[in-house]
């Protein structure tokens, strides 16, 4: 049990953060796309995420929560090392989160300001998250090379979120905004590909221990399906975005599936690269883990509540299925 529990929590944490990237990723992507839309479209785009964003954001609380609960020693080390990017990400999340509500509740004359803050908040959040992922992969040790690597992820993560956001809009909108979303997705596709390839090549270069895990013959053969599936999904998304008759023929959810497959593969790749470290090369999950009984009691809670959460999250998505129409708070008099 003392051996298994940290492993279970390592994967639970990965699962929560993976869901966070997908779910809040599309919210943040929509924030990033907001300046490109006209006023009516802005309302519609925000309406499409209105009922979901709050719960989406909760996954990062669970992810960081598990880090804190299961690996208290690592929690301090990681968050202290990432002090500035974490704090600025929080400020981005604050601005983004409140802009949702203020833009429809403050007077109409302030709406453009809150739209801008919604965009700025989403951008700050995304860039900081990219920087944090970069610093985390490079073992939280600051150096010029590592900073360049972190910067690389910081500037490319927006491409992924934009692709997620645009794919979400394909599911949730129709008409002109739908057409625009196809265009936005196409714009983001190429930068995201470049980002994927660069990050995949750069990661083993900046981290020897990751390189040694991937590039031995027998490991590499076993791992080959990961990059291959990623590449296949990536190309499929690019192809789909050009097939108007498919996307407009009731298959508008397919690009989203493709992007999710890319994210799943990247997460598996990353989990494999890190395991069993929670801080790479410094602290493994058993060193960082909380005491056994505390882990057990929380595991009981997880086993009961996570399936429930999944069920009622599904229920909410079911209730708000179909295309979004304007979110009317009735302040438009």
């Amino acid at each position: 049990m003392e051996y298994a529990l940290p492993i279970i929590f390592f994967f639970l944490m990965g699962f929560a953060l993976f869901l966070y990237v997908i779910l809040d990723g599309y919210d943040l992507g929509i924030g990033l796309l907001l300046p490109l839309a006209d006023d009516g479209e802005k309302d519609l785009m925000i309406a499409s995420i209105g009922p979901f964003w709050d719960a989406n954001e909760t996954w990062i609380v669970l992810g960081i929560g598990i880090l804190l609960i299961a690996f208290p020693l690592a929690h301090g080390t990681i968050l202290t090392a990432l002090y500035l990017p974490v704090t600025f990400m929080l400020m981005g999340l604050i601005l983004r989160g409140v802009a949702f509500d203020f833009r429809v509740k403050a007077g109409d004359q302030h709406k453009p300001m809150w739209n801008k803050l919604f965009f700025i908040g989403s951008l700050i959040t995304t860039i900081c998250q990219g920087w944090m992922i970069g610093s985390y992969i490079t073992g939280l040790s600051p150096s010029l090379v590592n900073s360049v690597f972190s910067l690389l992820i910081a500037v490319t993560l927006p491409a992924l979120y934009i692709l997620l956001g645009a794919s979400w809009l394909l599911i949730k909108t129709e008409g002109e905004l739908f057409d625009k979303s196809i265009r936005w997705a196409r714009y983001a596709w190429l930068p995201m590909g470049i980002a994927l390839i660069t990050v995949s090549i750069a990661t083993p270069l900046v981290s020897e221990s990751i390189a040694s895990k991937w590039f031995t013959v027998q490991n590499f053969i076993g791992l080959v399906p990961i990059p291959f599936t990623t590449i296949a999904a990536y190309l499929a998304v690019g192809w789909l975005l050009k097939q108007n008759h498919i996307i407009k023929g009731g298959w508008e959810w397919l690009p989203m599936v493709g992007v999710i497959v890319i994210c799943i593969m990247s997460s598996i790749g990353m989990a494999y690269s890190l395991f069993p470290y929670v801080v790479i090369d410094q602290m493994n999950i058993w060193q960082a883990a909380a005491e056994k009984n505390s882990l057990l009691i929380i595991l009981v809670g997880v086993c009961i509540s996570v399936p429930l959460i999944v069920v009622y999250t599904g229920f909410v998505y079911y209730i708000f299925r179909g295309k979004a129409s304007n979110l009317s708070y009735g302040m438009d008099n």
Partner: peptide, 25 residues
């Protein structure tokens, strides 16, 4: 952490998701 962790964890698991999800409805 062994004490604060589970208490905060139960808050996220039993409260945060519940309120955030049903607030949408």
């Amino acid at each position: 952490g062994n004490i604060a962790g589970p208490l905060l964890g139960y808050e996220v698991l039993t409260a945060f998701f519940l309120e955030a999800s049903f607030l949408g409805i």
